[in-house]
Computed example of a mutant assay.
Amino acid sequence: MNTTDLPQFPDVKPFEIQDRQAVNRFLDRFDVESCEYSFTNLFCWQNAYPMAWTVYQDRLVILNKRNGSFLMPVGEFLPPEDLFILSAMIQNGCSTPEITSVPQRYLDEHPAVKGYYTISKQRDHADYIYSAEKLAELKGKKLHKKKNQISQFERRYPQYRVESIQGDMIRKCRDFANELFARQTKPPESLVYEHDAITNAFRCFDQLGLEGQVLLIGDRPAAFSLYSRLTPDTYDIHFEKADLLVKGAAQVINHEVAKRLKNRCTFINREQDLGVPGLRKAKLSYDPVDIRINATLHFTPADTMSERLRKPFHEGSTKPLKK
């Protein structure tokens, strides 16, 4: 892959809508499974998480400008010693250059990484993976309650319908999201950032390649879901909002999306619970087939090896790194 036309480390750039094709060249080639890498998420949430991107040794590096942490580089795995040098260079101007979203496969293939980093697991940032077919059919004892809730909704609102989000429906769903947010008297910071991200998603709906479904009662939205393809066999649910005054709306929109996606993918990624107890309970209740827990590599610059690796860069060396 030719990357000479892209920003090269140490130069970085924020995520802009025109970067989608360039970034997705990396993501599509290497089938990155974590929702953390989704261009839609990186673009829409940038006011909450000031992320930027660059290319280092032909790998895509996505980093947090606020604290210097970065996602595991996208591309052929870097050997631990080269990964450590990258951490050391980033640490020059930042305090905590941790590496997040490190897949278990990297730890298995490069056990020597334990000599360079302290390793921890990211349970709060684990991706919840579901069978699209199972969510669409709601078979099994664990999903029986969901089926009952949907049946109750259908009896209560026999006139409901589900439509694709396109054209003027984008505006209607955006207005609905604004209405739900306006009901919050003192919204926590997390909801403020989420609403900002949803606003960005609707503003650039087509440019981001988003798809969605809206649940309507009459002509009024009761819930919506926005999603896009993450890998060839997985769709990522980016945002899903429902009117809590309409009992069962959340379960219906989840079910309707799964019915529409089951013939287009094998899995549905419903993203993370962020350690929120209620959200964790809700995600577990849908019986995920996998809870994909990645690791974080914690940089320890006081280590003797770190000092040896960092010294040339502290002296201003620009010698190319060994590939």
Results as ranks from 00 to 15, higher is better:
Tyr286Arg: 10
Ile198Asp: 09
Val214Cys: 02
Lys141Ser: 14
Leu6Gln: 05
Arg264Glu: 09
Asn2Gly: 15
Tyr116Arg: 01
Tyr128Ala: 07
Pro221Glu: 05
Arg123Pro: 15
Thr318Asn: 12
Glu154Lys: 12
Gln159Pro: 01
Gly212Phe: 03
Asp290Ser: 13
Asn24Trp: 04
Leu216Val: 10
Val276Arg: 11
Leu107Gln: 01
Leu83Pro: 07
Lys134Leu: 04
His195Tyr: 05
Pro277Gly: 09
Thr304Ala: 15
Asp11Tyr: 13
Met89Leu: 12
Phe84Pro: 02
Ser164Asn: 14
Pro7Cys: 07
Lys145Gln: 15
Leu60Asn: 03
Leu274Gln: 00
Tyr128Cys: 01
Met89Pro: 08
Lys172Thr: 10
Phe15Ala: 09
Phe39Ala: 07
Pro221Ala: 02
Asp290Gly: 08
Cys35Asp: 00
Pro187Arg: 04
Phe181Tyr: 15
Ser120Arg: 15
Gly278Arg: 04
Ile119Ala: 02
Val252Arg: 06
Cys265Trp: 12
Val102Asn: 00
Glu271Phe: 07
Lys134Met: 06
Arg155Glu: 13
Leu244His: 11
Val61Thr: 03
Asp28Val: 00
Arg155Met: 07
Ala282His: 10
Ser190Val: 15
Val23Ala: 02
Phe39Gln: 04
Ser190Asn: 15
Met305Ile: 14
Thr304Gly: 10
Leu107Ser: 09
Lys311Gln: 12
Gly140Leu: 05
Gly140Ile: 07
Leu83Phe: 02
Ile165Lys: 08
Glu76Leu: 13
Ser38Asn: 05
Leu274Asn: 06
Arg25Tyr: 09
Met72Asp: 08
Lys145Ile: 11
Val246Arg: 03
Lys241Thr: 08
Ala88Gly: 15
Val162Tyr: 06
Ile237Tyr: 10
Thr266Leu: 02
Pro320Ser: 01
Tyr128Arg: 03
Phe205Thr: 00
Gly93Ile: 09
Ala136Tyr: 04
Phe299Gly: 01
Glu194His: 02
Phe176Glu: 07
Phe299Ser: 06
Thr296Leu: 00
Arg29Gln: 14
Leu83Gln: 13
Phe15Gln: 09
Ile198Phe: 09
Phe15Glu: 10
Lys311Asp: 06
Glu163Thr: 08
Asn41Met: 07
Leu143Ile: 04
Gln8Asn: 14
Lys145Asp: 15
Glu133Ala: 06
Val162Ser: 03
His298Gln: 00
Leu261Phe: 08
Ile198Thr: 13
Ser164Ile: 12
Ala177Trp: 02
Asp287Lys: 13
Thr231Ala: 01
Pro103Thr: 03
Phe181Leu: 04
Asp233Arg: 11
Ile237Phe: 12
